[in-house]
C-alpha cells in the first residue's frame, strides 16, 4: 500500500522547505515590495523562473552546479563530507529553489498592498524601518505570508521532476511520495498508486481550502466590521 517511509520523508521535506522559505523568502518579498530599484524586474523574473521552466531543466542545472565537479559542490563536500546531489540536503535546496515563486509572490503581493503611508506614519512615531515592518506591515500582510508558506508546502508535496533529477530515488533519503507513485505505476501496482494519488489530491485540496478560509476570516473584520 502507501509507502509510509516516502510519505514521512515528503512531509519533512515540505515542512522544512516552507520554513526555509519563510526565513529567505520574506526578506526577499519585503525588498520586492519596497524597492524602486531597476534591478527589481530582473529579480522578479528570476524568482518566477521555476514557474515556467521544466523542472528537469532546473534539476539539471542544480546537478551541474552542485555536483562534485563544480567549485560549490567540492566546497560543500569538504565542509560536510557528503555530496549534495542524491542527499536530503540537496533535495531541500532544490525544493527551496523550485518553490521560491510560490512563497515569494503571495508574500510580496500582500506586502505591496500595505498602504505606504501607514509605514511612514509609524516612522514619524519613532519606529525604525524594521520595527515598523514588524508592527504594521506583517500584521496586515500575514494572510499573504501564510498563503506563501502553504502554497510552497503543497507544491513541494507534489514536486516530481526536480526531485528525480537531484535526489534520485533512494528509499528513506530522497524517495518522495510522488516518486513512489511513479514506481507503483511502473510496477503495475495500481491499487497502491490509486491510494497514493488520492492521498496527494486530498491533502493538496484540504491545505488550499484551509488557506482560503483563513484569508477570508483574516480580512473581513478589517474591511467592514459591525458599526
Amino acid at each position: 500500500m502507501i509507502d509510509v517511509e516516502a510519505l514521512t520523508l515528503t512531509v519533512r521535506l515540505a515542512a522544512t522547505t516552507s520554513a526555509m522559505l519563510l526565513v529567505l523568502g520574506l526578506p526577499l518579498a519585503a525588498w520586492l515590495a519596497a524597492t524602486r530599484s531597476r534591478a527589481r524586474v530582473l529579480v522578479e523574473a528570476l524568482v518566477a523562473l521555476p514557474l515556467v521552466l521544466p523542472p528537469t531543466v532546473l534539476g539539471f542545472y542544480l546537478l551541474a552546479l552542485l555536483g562534485p565537479r563544480s567549485a560549490a559542490g567540492r566546497a560543500w563536500e569538504a565542509a560536510t563530507g557528503a555530496l549534495l546531489p542524491f542527499s536530503f540536503s540537496g533535495l531541500l535546496l532544490a525544493s527551496v529553489i523550485a518553490s521560491l515563486p510560490f512563497a515569494v509572490q503571495p508574500m510580496a503581493a500582500a506586502l505591496s498592498a500595505v498602504d505606504r503611508r501607514l509605514l511612514e506614519a509609524a516612522w514619524t512615531l519613532g519606529d525604525s524601518r524594521l520595527r515598523a515592518f514588524a508592527r504594521v506591515a506583517l500584521p496586515l500582510a500575514w494572510p499573504g505570508v501564510v498563503s506563501g508558506m502553504v502554497l510552497s508546502f503543497a507544491h513541494t508535496l507534489g514536486e516530481f521532476g526536480v526531485v528525480l533529477m537531484v535526489g534520485g530515488n533512494i528509499p528513506g533519503r530522497t524517495r518522495t511520495i510522488s516518486i513512489a507513485l511513479y514506481d507503483h505505476v511502473q510496477a503495475l501496482e495500481y491499487e497502491a498508486a490509486a491510494a497514493t494519488a488520492g492521498l496527494l489530491l486530498a491533502a493538496s485540496f484540504t491545505v488550499l481550502a484551509l488557506t482560503f478560509a483563513l484569508q477570508r476570516r483574516a480580512f473581513s473584520p478589517l474591511a467592514a466590521g459591525p458599526r
Partner: peptide, 12 residues
C-alpha cells in the same frame, strides 16, 4: 507629529 489626509490609521 504628522496627521495624514485620510488619517492613515493602523487598520489592525
Amino acid at each position: 507629529g504628522l496627521v495624514f489626509q485620510e488619517g492613515a490609521l493602523f487598520p489592525h
